[in-house]
């Protein structure tokens, strides 16, 4: 286990410590658990609002990233993989965005998660922005796919904080189904 992240005097602590991960898949290459794991890089960990902005300001925006890149912000100790014990019974809300919306929506998503706006206790595991050729995808992972009250609350909060057009399609997928069909989206 990694050492605890220190919150310095004057900083505003977050409810949880988070890890910032980056991954990029070679286009056209079949995604497997093994190469996904190998491509996953831990960039930073943060436990306060100030530490988050310090890293985020130096991070590229989704709009600047090449296709097939993913940024993951997960609670410390949870690896952004379906197989992680926190994720294995979980699932995710998937929001597909047309190009041009991702940077704003992603920032709103992160701020809602760090600020504990979802009000679902420990259910949220993390969030991912996936930059693809024709669209960008935000997904929010939670622990218990079968808990429809929680997943409903997450959907409603997501709709509110992302401020999406009412026509935006949102889809829930269990990680178990993703494992079975070997595809994330």
């Amino acid at each position: 286990p990694l050492p605890q992240v220190e919150v310095k005097p004057g900083e505003h602590p977050l409810q949880y410590t988070y890890s910032l991960w980056f991954s990029r898949r070679a286009p056209g290459k079949q995604a497997t658990t093994q190469n996904y794991d190998q491509n996953l890089q831990l960039l930073a960990r943060f436990a306060s609002v100030e530490q988050f902005w310090g890293y985020y300001s130096r991070c590229l925006r989704p709009v600047d990233l090449p296709s097939h890149s993913d940024i993951h912000i997960f609670k410390d100790g949870i690896k952004p993989m379906w197989e992680d014990s926190a994720n294995k019974n979980g699932g995710k809300w998937i929001v597909r965005l047309r190009k041009g919306l991702a940077s704003r929506c992603w920032e709103n998503m992160i701020l809602a998660m760090l600020g504990e706006q979802f009000m679902v206790g420990d259910e949220i595991c993390g969030a991912v922005i996936s930059v693809r050729f024709q669209e960008d995808i935000i997904s929010v992972w939670n622990r218990t796919a079968q808990d429809s009250i929680t997943t409903g609350k997450i959907r409603d909060t997501l709709k509110r904080v992302l401020n999406l057009p009412p026509t935006t399609v949102m889809e829930y997928k269990t990680h178990n189904d993703s494992l079975k069909d070997h595809s994330s989206f």
Binding site: E11, P13, F52, W53, G54, S57, G115, E116, Q117
Partner: peptide, 21 residues
């Protein structure tokens, strides 16, 4: 237990904090 909740506007203000580097 108690949760540490922050509003979006507050978090956005903190972006320019001298401690945020």
């Amino acid at each position: 237990g108690t949760r540490i909740i922050y509003e979006r506007t507050f978090l956005l203000q903190m972006r320019n904090s001298p401690l945020a580097k």
